[in-house]
């Protein structure tokens, strides 16, 4: 049981991981709304997925990402389910990145975010092409229309749109997730398997900006 575990060990019990995934989904949903209220040109809806991946590992991150899109589909955005694969990939990349130490300093976090954005665009493009014909009903459709107007195929236009918007979004997302991990109390961090990687008391771990 999680209560009997030494905090420094962290644990992967179903109860701890389920609670982490629940918090991650709520952060994703509210994060997207906060970004939308601030009228910023990013989605900001995967901060929780990155945090879950960093703390719980790649599979927990993937699970948090995929479930976020399923919750959206149950809450009136049915089309979101199609992108559950992309969301899962983001969580998995976040988990692997954290394990390899790529989320320790802001410059590394920024580069990881940018790379994740490109990968997310590459994964999303065939889904957007096959499921939606490249059009997703958002403001980014204007970018798709621009590329189509230039003569690009639907797949090329979807990929172009993703390359234009996703790296910036994931750069912001990963930096926000890093700030969240940095702001977490130490005793809370150490409850999770990946928490030691962000323990400020450990000289090998996180570095201040």
């Amino acid at each position: 049981m999680s209560t009997s575990q030494e905090p420094s060990q962290g644990n992967r019990s179903a109860s701890r991981m389920s609670a982490l995934v629940t918090a991650a989904i709520l952060i994703n949903l509210a994060g997207g709304e906060i970004v939308s209220v601030l009228r910023l040109p990013v989605y900001g809806d995967s901060v929780g997925t990155v945090v879950a991946g960093a703390l719980g590992g790649p599979l927990t991150g993937a699970f948090a990402g995929a479930l976020t899109n399923i919750v959206w589909s149950l809450l009136g955005r049915p089309g979101a389910a199609a992108f559950a694969i992309t969301a899962a990939a983001i969580g998995m990349i976040a988990g692997i990145s954290a394990q390899r130490g790529w989320l320790r300093t802001p410059p590394r976090v920024a580069v990881t975010g940018l790379i994740t954005g490109v990968l997310a665009a590459v994964i999303s493009a065939p889904i957007a092409t096959y499921v939606y014909g490249g059009v997703t009903g958002g403001g980014t459709d204007a970018v798709v229309a621009f590329f189509r107007g230039m003569g690009a195929s639907i797949l090329e236009a979807s990929l172009g749109q993703g390359i234009v918007s996703d790296p910036l979004d994931k750069l912001v997302t990963f930096l926000l997730a890093w700030l969240v991990l940095r702001a977490m109390p130490r005793h809370l961090l150490l409850r999770y398997p990946g928490g030691t990687l962000f323990d400020r008391a450990d000289p090998e771990a996180i570095v201040d900006a």
Binding site: M1, S2, T3, S13, A14, S15, R16, S18, A19, L20, T22, A23, L26, I27, A30, G31, I34, V35, L38, L40, G44, V47, G48, V51, V172, L176, L179, V180, A183, M184, P185, L188, R191
Partner: peptide
């Protein structure tokens, strides 16, 4: 304005997740 809005909100939820995990285990 983005970090001051998201970071405290996320840390609050993660703190609650810790309590929730213990309740679920019990």
């Amino acid at each position: 304005a983005l970090p001051p809005r998201i970071v405290p909100f996320a840390v609050g939820l993660l703190s609650e997740a810790d309590v929730r995990a213990q309740a679920l285990a019990l």
